[in-house]
């Protein structure tokens, strides 16, 4: 701080006023009011000022750089949200597990198409086809022999919530093939195993009830 800043300038002002009060009072008496500002100057200054303000608004679209950045961030955020929800929209694609692979994961719909022999399925699906074909044979023409046919399976139905978890899990049937034909019966051990297995998995959310056949 400069030395002069330490001075009490209010006192200096008052002292100056006192010392020259006579001059001030005489000046106040004789000084006339200045003329008013000419109107054409008022108009000119207002015109320039308003134009400048308009330019400022145009330059600072949406009130400046800060809001522009915020707007850009909001747009990117909205795009991100749309993308995420777009990916999570239910589709007609086959149900796919997100977690560790289950022994057999497919849908009844696929299985039906597979029975017609029109689709090429993966290895897991091949097993499933065998089950379906075997069951059809069992129900119509008695026992069937196939080295690929599994010895047992559990068929479950469930729905998938928004987080991809299975809920309302219902065991439809649990079957075994002791030697010839199939024997489906109640079995708490299979039921519990199927429930535990399905609960550990994550699926694509869908509004439709899903069915899976699990091979223990």
């Amino acid at each position: 701080m400069k030395p002069t800043d330490k001075k009490n300038w209010l006192a200096e002002d008052l002292e100056l006023d006192r010392e020259f009060s006579d001059v001030s009072s005489k000046y106040a008496r004789v000084a006339e009011e200045p003329p008013p500002v000419p109107h054409h100057i008022d108009r000119l200054v207002h015109g320039v000022a308003h134009q400048n303000a308009f330019d400022s608004l145009q330059r600072n679209w949406l009130l400046g750089n800060g809001p522009q950045v915020a707007l850009a961030a909001m747009i990117f955020f909205a795009i991100g949200i749309l993308t995420v929800y777009g990916l999570r929209t239910p589709t007609d694609t086959p149900l796919t597990e997100v977690g560790p692979a289950a022994p057999v994961v497919t849908t009844a719909k696929e299985a039906t198409s597979a029975t017609s022999g029109t689709d090429v399925l993966e290895s897991d699906m091949t097993d499933f086809n065998s089950i379906i074909l075997a069951r059809q044979r069992a129900s119509t023409s008695g026992p069937a022999e196939s080295g690929k046919e599994p010895r047992s399976w559990v068929r479950v139905a469930f729905s998938v919530d928004a987080a991809g978890r299975a809920e309302a899990i219902r065991v439809i049937e649990r079957c075994v093939r002791p030697s010839a034909g199939y024997d489906c019966m109640d079995d708490d051990v299979y039921d519990q195993w199927a429930l535990d297995h399905i609960r550990q998995k994550r699926f694509k959310p869908t509004a439709q009830v899903q069915e899976l056949i699990l091979l223990p």
């Binding site: 200054v45 308003h50 303000a53 308009f54």
Partner: peptide, 12 residues
């Protein structure tokens, strides 16, 4: 400065 010309009118 942000574009409010009414503010300038008041100052003027």
């Amino acid at each position: 400065a942000r574009g409010d010309h009414g503010a300038f009118d008041e100052l003027y």
